[in-house]
Design a binder for these strands. Structure first.
Lengths: 186, 186
DNA sequence: TCCTGTTTATAGATCGGTCTACATATTTCC
DNA sequence: GGAAATATGTAGACCGATCTATAAACAGGA
C-alpha cells in the first residue's frame, strides 16, 4: 500500500467529509472530491473500489469517530452531564458559525438523504449515532441518572435538532435556547 | 389562469413534495418530478419559471403550511402542551413508519442541503420552522408556561432531532424515548 | 520484462434548462 | 352571432454541462 497511498486515501476521505457536511450525499460530486483533494480521478476508484457509496460511508464513520473522541474527552473532564452537553453544544456551535453555517453535523444530511434507499450508508449513519448515544448513556449512568437510556436518546435528539434549526436559521439562537432549557432533562 | 392549469401546478408541487421528502433537493431530479406528476416538461417551466429552486421552495412552503394546520388543530384540541407534543410525535411517527422510513420532516433534508448555498430555499425552510415554533410558543404561553420562547424552540428541536434519529435507525425507538422524557420540559 | 501502484482519458447516462410546435380557451371586433 | 386574434397551457425534442464509473496508458522497482 505504501505511505503515499495511505496519504492519498486520507486526503480523499477528508475532502469528502468536508463536502458532504455542506451539501450531503447527492449534493457532492466526485469531481468536487477529486478537485478538493488534489488526487487524480483513478486513484479514487483504486482506493475505494466500491465507488461513491464506500467513499461516503467511510467518511461518515471517520467523522463519527472524530466527534466521538471529542465526546469521550469531554465526558472525562466535564463536572457533570449538563456540563458535558453544554460543552458539546458550544463546541459544535463555534464550528458551525466559523464555517459560515456550513458545518453542522457531518452525519445528519447523509442520514436523511439515504435513510430509505442505501443500506450501507444507512448502516454507517445508524452506527455513528448509536456510538454517540452510548457515550452519553455511559456518562449519565455513571452520574447515577435515573433514566440514562431514554435521556441519552433525548439529549442526542435535542442536540441534532438544535444543529438542524441553527443551520436552517443561520443563527446560534436555537443552540442558545436549547442550552438554557437542557438542565430540565438532566 | 384556468382550472386545468391550477391542477397541473398542484400535481407538480405534490410530486415534488413527496420526492424531496425522501431524497432531498439534490437527490430529486426534475425528470422524476415530471414522471411522477404526469405533467410534461414544458409545463414545469411554464408554471415555475424560476426553475427547480422555485418549485422546491414552493413545495417546502406548501408542506410547511399543511403540517402547520395539523399543528394548530392539535393545539386547539389537546388538553395541555404535553398532549399536543405527544400527539404530533405520534402522528409523525405513524406517517414515517407507514412510508417505510421515507417521510419524516419534509423540510429538514432541504434545509440541511441548502443552508449555506441557496438564499431563497434557506429562507423558505427558515420561515416554515419559524411558523411551527410560533404555534408551539402560543400554546405554551396560553398555558402560562414560564419560559414559552426557549421551550418552544427546545421542543421543536427535540421533535426534529427525534425524527432524524428515527429515520437514521429506521425505528420508532427514538420517538418513543423522547416521548417518555418530554414531560420534564413542560 | 513483468508486476504493482497510479494517472489520464473517456464512456455512457442523467442533470437542469431552453426551444419550437401544438392544442385549447378567452377576448375582440365587425 | 361568428370569425379572427390573443392568451393560456400542453407536449416533447433537444442542448451543453456534469454525473459516476471504467478502460487503457503510464511510471518505477525487482
Amino acid at each position: 500500500m505504501g505511505q503515499k497511498g495511505e496519504e492519498t486515501r486520507g486526503r480523499l476521505l477528508d475532502a469528502t467529509r468536508d463536502l458532504i457536511e455542506t451539501g450531503g450525499y447527492f449534493g457532492t460530486g466526485l469531481n468536487q472530491v477529486v478537485a478538493a483533494s488534489g488526487a487524480p480521478r483513478g486513484s479514487l476508484y483504486f482506493h475505494f473500489p466500491g465507488g461513491k457509496d464506500q467513499l461516503v460511508a467511510e467518511s461518515v464513520r471517520r467523522a463519527g469517530r472524530e466527534i466521538g473522541e471529542v465526546l469521550h474527552a469531554l465526558a472525562e473532564t466535564a463536572p457533570d452531564a449538563a456540563g458535558l452537553v453544554t460543552g458539546v453544544i458550544r463546541l459544535l456551535g463555534d464550528r458551525l458559525e466559523e464555517s459560515g453555517w456550513r458545518k453542522g453535523c457531518p452525519v445528519a444530511t447523509v442520514a436523511l438523504e439515504t435513510a430509505a434507499t442505501s443500506d450501507p450508508l444507512h448502516r454507517a449513519c445508524s452506527d455513528v449515532y448509536g456510538s454517540w448515544e452510548e457515550a452519553l448513556r455511559l456518562r449519565l449512568a455513571a452520574d447515577g441518572h435515573p433514566e440514562p437510556d431514554d435521556t441519552a436518546a433525548t439529549v442526542l435528539a435535542l442536540v441534532e435538532g438544535a444543529l438542524l434549526l441553527a443551520r436552517a436559521h443561520r443563527s446560534r439562537d436555537p443552540l442558545d435556547r436549547v442550552t438554557r432549557r437542557i438542565a430540565a432533562l438532566l
